[in-house]
Design a protein around this nucleic acid. Structure first.
Length: 286
DNA sequence: AATTATGTTGCGGT
DNA sequence: AACCGCAACATAAT
């Protein structure tokens, strides 16, 4: 699932659902997903979730009274968190029922059971994602790898513009580089470049200052807008209640190859750039 | 039925 | 160092 808006959607839901809850049991269904060593799950027993932070597409769980114990969670391609509330009551107002899903199911890799009988499941079909323990040093090291986020209020457009000019790679590849700018993935890069009217195949170093500024603004805009409607479900993304994101309805180029550009009417094409499927309008993206 | 693509990213090679 | 291609893995689509 995984770009910033989808991760943020999950994070916001989990803040509401699991912060303050105490872990009473941990069940590991697949070792690769958790990187847990023997009996390591014991370290989480009786711990209470204090907060969930996010850097780029990485979620960081902290625990009450623990200064050196964290959990890093990355969804990568197909990771999903599902919350099933023990106190969930039919007609309870804002039920978060996970529908049409067997939990734990074939792709469930981990479960955290809470003292109130609710459960947080981690599903991940392709096993690229993880929910692993980390100490404070590991968290700091992980944080240090991320560049600035375009949704941040203090995002430095000037610095971004200057840095872009030093990049020889294609702008598509540069925007996918999490250490350069954090949060964009394959969908939002294509959408942001469409909004900014810039071709993904342009070398970053050839972009004008105005184009760089447009890309920065579009990147922030598209991700902020997506967060407000629960992210994009193109294939695998589900929120913690098993629901799809609604930004799919607002995509302009991603997956739209062969149909007309809503801005200029040219036919949108799909090519391969930076090893990724890339969609753009040859009519209005320069 | 084999090949191809998939919303990520870390690695190894140039 | 910067950049590029591919592998990690499971599944659906062609």
């Amino acid at each position: 699932m995984p770009e910033l808006p989808e991760v943020e959607t999950v994070r916001l839901q989990l803040l509401d659902k699991v912060v303050g809850k105490t872990i009473s049991g941990v069940e590991v269904f697949h070792d690769k997903s958790v990187d847990y060593e023997e009996a390591v799950e014991d370290r989480l027993l009786t711990k209470t979730i204090e907060h969930i932070d996010r850097v780029g597409k990485l979620m960081i769980f902290s625990f009450v009274g623990e200064q050196d114990l964290y959990v890093l969670a990355h969804l990568k391609m197909t990771g999903q968190f599902f919350f099933v509330g023990g106190d969930e009551v039919v007609g309870g107002g804002h039920s978060m029922t996970v529908t049409d899903m067997e939990l734990p199911g074939r792709h469930t890799r981990l479960a955290w059971y809470f003292t109130d009988s609710s459960t947080l499941y981690f599903n991940d079909m392709r096993l690229f994602g993880y929910v692993k323990l980390a100490d404070a040093a590991a968290v700091a090291a992980a944080r240090a790898k991320f560049g600035p986020e375009p949704i941040a209020a203090d995002f430095d457009v000037k610095a971004f513009s200057v840095a872009l000019r030093k990049k020889k790679a294609l702008v598509k590849a540069v925007l996918l580089d999490q250490s350069f700018i954090a949060g964009l993935g394959n969908i939002y890069v294509d959408e942001a470049l469409w909004r900014a009217k810039v071709r993904p195949t342009r070398r970053a170093s050839t972009l004008t200052r105005a184009q760089a500024a447009a890309i920065a603004a579009a990147s922030g805009d598209v991700m902020r807008e997506s967060i407000t409607v629960g992210g994009t479900t193109f294939r695998h993304f589900k929120d913690t209640g098993g629901q799809n994101g609604n930004f799919t309805d607002y995509l302009k180029v991603f997956g739209k190859q062969g149909i007309k550009c809503p801005r200029c009417g040219e036919i949108i094409v799909k090519i391969k750039t930076a090893g990724r499927g890339t969609h753009y309008c040859p009519g209005c993206q320069k």
